[in-house]
Design a protein around this nucleic acid. Structure first.
Lengths: 191, 191
DNA sequence: GATTTAATATGATCTATATCATATATTAGA
DNA sequence: TCTAATATATGATATAGATCATATTAAATC
């Protein structure tokens, strides 16, 4: 019995992490299998022992990030829903997020996803649904806002991060993020 | 003197139109030079008499669309600023827009633009700036809203269209667009 | 209608990259 | 330390697509 059972699984996870980071930064066509594998210290040949294709990896990396970013599960037990919403907005609309620290695929892959397979798009749709559902559940306990409010706020913050990422001017990014943070705060009762 | 002077210019415009439609629909890497040229009834060989490269065309098509979609110039003379803002929001947040009729590059290329050249990104930034400036000018005449309000509304409508485009479910698209139309209307005084 | 010249098409090249086939390296247990 | 089984690396293949070089076509003027 060569290698421990977890060895391959660990490698798989390393590939998924590199893939997610690179795909969100550069899109499907902006990254090669070679680059992804090198990024996690391997070579391209090992790739097909883990995934059937580059497209397969893209979808898998999206699923992987979704599974490790469940907003409800990540919530610390000792804070209120309101405090959690405030923290989530702060993080989402932060300069660090725009730079790609813990990138949200909804914002980073918003247009890239359109040229992917239906199955891949379905994964993306699931992430989007999850975000709205979580925000709905958190806000319902302390503020009066309906589904339309939530949909408009998530569209705004996703849009803000997507646009911010295209900008070269840091001050303009900060201004845009602050504007949307204020607006989201007003809407969701966390100013 | 073979051909009229306008012949080449007309061909150039046909290429730009095809390119803009195809690039917005499928992104830079989702379209080939061949496909663009065939789309306007030509073959790939003719391409390099008009543009130096595919990347050159992408940037040119973005500029071209910007020049033909100046919101201030498009405004009919016989309507008020307020009516114009209302019409613009209706059109932007329409199902037809999501389907790609007169696509706004800000929404359709939001993440695609990140892997393009700095010059190309600058063109995109210009379009974004133009949109905000126009909205600011239209709204200032009849409603009290500051730059932050405008920035948050444009982020929302761009985000809404970008996300809507990823969805397979028409009803979900309609719901999202309606939510953002209501919100934008509240913010900009055009309910 | 013939000539000239620009516009367009055809065929070729060259490169990047996904994928595959095969060889090598690694490690758990004997 | 040796062996078996698996993971990984290397080298090869194949294809797509951007770009270029050259040939062909079309139209304005004579």
């Amino acid at each position: 019995m060569p290698y421990t059972k977890k060895h391959k699984e660990n490698t798989r996870i390393k590939i998924l992490e590199s893939a997610f980071r690179l795909f969100t930064a550069k899109g499907f066509d902006g990254v090669t299998v070679n680059v992804i594998m090198n990024d996690c210290g391997l070579t391209r040949g090992a790739f097909y022992a883990h995934f059937t294709s580059k497209a397969d990896l893209y979808a898998a990396s999206l699923k992987f990030s979704a599974s490790s970013s469940n907003l409800a599960k990540l919530k610390p037990v000792n804070i209120s829903d309101k405090e959690w919403v405030s923290l989530l907005l702060d993080g989402y609309l932060s300069f660090e997020h725009v730079q790609g620290i813990q990138p949200c695929p909804l914002a980073f892959l918003a247009t890239d996803i359109n040229t992917r397979s239906e199955e891949t798009k379905a994964v993306y749709a699931g992430v989007y649904h999850g975000m709205n559902k979580a925000m709905m559940e958190f806000t319902t306990s302390y503020v009066d806002c309906d589904e339309q409010d939530i949909l408009s706020v998530t569209a705004m913050i996703i849009g803000a991060v997507a646009i911010a990422r295209t900008m070269g001017n840091k001050n303009a990014v900060i201004k845009l993020l602050a504007a949307c943070r204020r607006e989201a705060g007003l809407k969701l009762g966390v100013i």
